[in-house]
Structure formats: structure tokens, C-alpha cells
Design a protein around this nucleic acid. Structure first.
Length: 379
DNA sequence: TCTGGGGTCCTAGGACCC
DNA sequence: TCTGGGGTCCTAGGACCC
């Protein structure tokens, strides 16, 4: 049954910043408005944000910079290295502005928030959407789009529709049953929130190209063939809410520090140096968040773009003797981990550290037989 | 020559137990 | 002849998100 029962508990507005990193750069350089702008990843490796003009050139997210730099240059594009400090503080400004509309906000990512709206508002949903777009732009300089629906997945779809439309209205209200059906009839499965490339491929192979076709399958079939996550997504598209607003950010469960090397590494000593460095940075992050870790994962990887070279990728997880935040201990165990997985004769391109099993530093449970070294922890 | 980084959740399979 | 069955916990890998 489609759309027969609405669980009208909440109304979600998804607020999504336009080309966020590019928009942040433009706030401080307004002369770049309406001109092509792109932002690069670490090491200036690839494109991670594009202004509309750059998208219109056909430049894709993740395109390696070396392949498109000439083209961008020729078209007078301005290209930035990423500046996460700046993007983080702009994000805070946007969030503060959104709180003036509702206290019930979920910060979903650096450039997206779910805002819970109440239905007994005197203003129409269209008018509220308009206000959100206008106020955020006015107070922060960041352009946003708004999608409103009874489930998060439909709100995401609504925002997606804003992106696709030809006439530039910055919001879409998707609460009417007939309108939802009409939109889902042409909504590509690969654009559904929660459907990635792997699932989209499988669906395409059985001839399912649109959201409407997908939600007509019965629950059992989807559950067995694709798992609970897709089933939840399907239910949400039918109007049944499965995901609540998460207003309190969960304390994180793992923490990662990893980088690609600009030049491949072959020597053990160089790889060790990188691991020691990442382990130190990771343990700094850990202590900054007042957390401790119980396990350290080390991973290494060769370059997988180069098919001619032999490939190697491996990881190992080492348990710490007790929950700890000490730099010394984490570095030591990370080094041991690397010893286990290092193999001679490969061109390593990337390595990293993951700290997991995190806990609040005030509730560590030391092993009965091992005394935590307080001095190291302080250090 | 040159291709990002940081997260979460689910599932299948193995180990282990009674 | 016929060789159990079910539960839990852990982990690696896959899929997804931005």
C-alpha cells in the first residue's frame, strides 16, 4: 500500500548549502560570484567542490586536478586549496541562523541540516522555505536550498529536485501524495538517498530505474535481496518515517587519520615515519575530544590506479592493553601493527591510522593487572 | 609525473559455548 | 543405516554518506 497512512509525527526541512566550499570562498571574495570556482582536496589531488559554472563545464566531482587544470585555467576558473577551518566556521554560522527557525535541528554534515518544523505554523511551508533561504543568505552570505517532506528520505529527494529544476526556485515542498507519485515516477534510483552505485547497478539490471518502480516491490523481496537498509529507504519513500531527527550528536565511535603520498613510498623506514606521524595526530584528536581508544588499526595501500604495478592493500587491528589516549602507547602499537603488514617490493601510495572502541576519558576501565601510566597520558 | 579524507552501519562467517 | 542444534560474540569487508 502506498501513501495510505502517514505517520504525521514530524515535518522535515532539509537545508542544503549550494556548492558549500565554493560558496564559502565567495563570501570572502564576492568578485567571484557567477564566475567558475573549484576547491581541491588535500595535496591538491582532485576536485572536491565545484561552482555551478564549473559543473556546467562537465567537470565531475573527484576529477583528478592534473587532468582538468589546463581546461580550468583556460576558462578563467579560480581554484582554491581546501581550507577546512574556514568551512567549519561558516557552517557554524549557518547552523546558528537555522536555530532561529527551530530548536530541533540535526546537523547532518558540514553543509546540511535537518530542521524539524511544526505544522500549525501560520505561514505556509512555501513561505517558511522562502524565509529560510532568504535569512541564511542575508546573515551568512551562503546560498541554500530547502526540501520539505514527512520523511528524511523524501526531504532529501525534494532538495534533489530543487537541484535539477530549470527555473530557479530554491525550495520544494513534497507533502502532497499525488505530487510525490508524479515526482517519483521519473526520479532515478541512483539519486535516492541511501542507494549507492552498487545497489543502483543491481536495480538497473532487473530493470528498475525509477523510485516509483522500486517502492512497488513488496517488503519481503527487498529485505531478502537487498537488506534492511534499502527496505527502510523504500518505506521512507512511501511516506513511512523510519529515521528520527537526531538532535544530539552521537559521540564518535572511531577516528581516522590518513593521507595519500604525493610520491610513492617503497622503504619501510619512510612508511614507518608516516605511521608514527599519523598516530601522533590521531592521538591528538583523541585527547582534544577527551576520549580514549581501545584499539588501533593500521592500513597501507599501493596505488590502485596503476594497473601495471602489483597491488597490495592490508590492514591490521591491534588491541591496546587498556583504554588509553597516550601518544606513546598509540605510536608504539601502531608501529607493531605496521611490522605485521609491511611487505617489501611495493609502491605504497597511502597509509593511515584508525582509532576505535572510543570512550570518554573519565570512564576508562583499566585492566586489573596493568597499571595505566598516568605520566604518559598527561604527556 | 599527477587520482581525497573521514565517518557509520550491516552482514556473513568463524569461533566458541552448552 | 542414522553422527545435534542453537545461541552469542567478534571481525573483516562491503556499502553507504558527505
Amino acid at each position: 500500500m502506498l501513501f495510505t497512512k502517514y505517520n504525521i509525527m514530524s515535518l522535515f526541512a532539509l537545508v542544503d548549502c549550494d556548492n558549500f566550499y565554493c560558496s564559502c570562498e565567495r563570501v570572502f571574495e564576492p568578485s567571484l560570484n557567477n564566475k567558475p570556482v573549484a576547491v581541491l582536496s588535500n595535496n591538491d589531488g582532485c576536485i572536491i567542490a565545484r561552482s555551478q559554472e564549473v559543473k556546467d563545464f562537465g567537470i565531475k566531482m573527484g576529477d583528478p586536478y592534473y587532468k582538468v587544470s589546463k581546461f580550468l585555467n583556460a576558462h578563467n576558473a579560480t581554484v582554491f586549496s581546501s581550507n577546512y577551518e574556514l568551512y567549519g566556521s561558516m557552517s557554524q554560522r549557518v547552523i546558528r541562523t537555522l536555530r532561529t527557525f527551530s530548536q530541533n535541528i540535526e546537523v547532518y554534515s558540514i553543509d546540511e541540516c535537518f530542521v524539524e518544523l511544526s505544522e500549525n505554523n501560520v505561514l505556509s511551508l512555501e513561505a517558511i522555505s522562502n524565509d529560510i533561504v532568504r535569512r541564511v543568505k542575508q546573515w551568512t552570505g551562503i546560498p541554500v536550498k530547502v526540501g520539505i517532506a514527512y520523511t528524511k528520505t523524501l526531504a532529501k529527494a525534494a532538495a534533489e529536485l530543487v537541484k535539477k529544476q530549470k527555473i530557479k526556485i530554491k525550495y520544494c515542498v513534497l507533502t502532497d501524495v499525488q505530487k510525490i507519485k508524479n515526482e517519483l515516477m521519473t526520479f532515478p534510483v541512483e539519486d535516492i538517498w541511501g542507494v549507492g552505485a552498487a545497489t543502483a547497478n543491481k536495480l538497473h539490471r532487473i530493470g528498475v530505474k525509477t523510485a516509483l518502480k522500486l517502492i512497488n516491490f513488496d517488503d519481503e523481496y527487498i529485505r531478502n535481496k537487498y537488506g534492511v537498509l534499502l527496505l527502510r529507504t523504500v518505506k521512507e519513500l512511501r511516506g513511512e518515517s523510519c529515521y528520527n531527527l537526531e538532535t544530539v550528536p552521537e559521540t564518535r565511535k572511531s577516528l581516522c587519520y590518513s593521507r595519500s603520498f604525493s610520491n610513492s613510498i617503497t622503504k619501510y623506514s619512510d612508511l614507518k615515519e608516516s605511521i608514527v606521524y599519523y598516530a601522533s595526530r590521531a592521538s591528538e584528536k583523541l585527547r582534544r575530544d577527551k576520549l580514549t581508544a581501545r584499539a588501533v588499526t593500521v592500513f597501507v595501500r599501493t596505488i590502485f590506479f596503476n594497473k601495471k604495478q602489483s597491488q597490495y592493500s592490508n590492514s591490521v587491528t591491534v588491541a591496546l592493553p587498556y583504554s588509553a589516549g597516550s601518544n606513546k602507547m598509540i605510536v608504539e602499537y601502531a608501529r607493531d601493527g605496521l611490522n605485521k603488514i609491511f611487505r617489501e617490493g611495493y609502491f605504497y601510495k597511502k597509509s593511515g591510522i584508525i582509532l576505535s572502541d572510543l570512550a570518554d576519558e573519565n570512564i576508562i576501565q583499566p585492566d586489573f593487572f596493568i597499571k595505566p601510566n598516568k605520566k604518559d597520558d598527561k604527556l
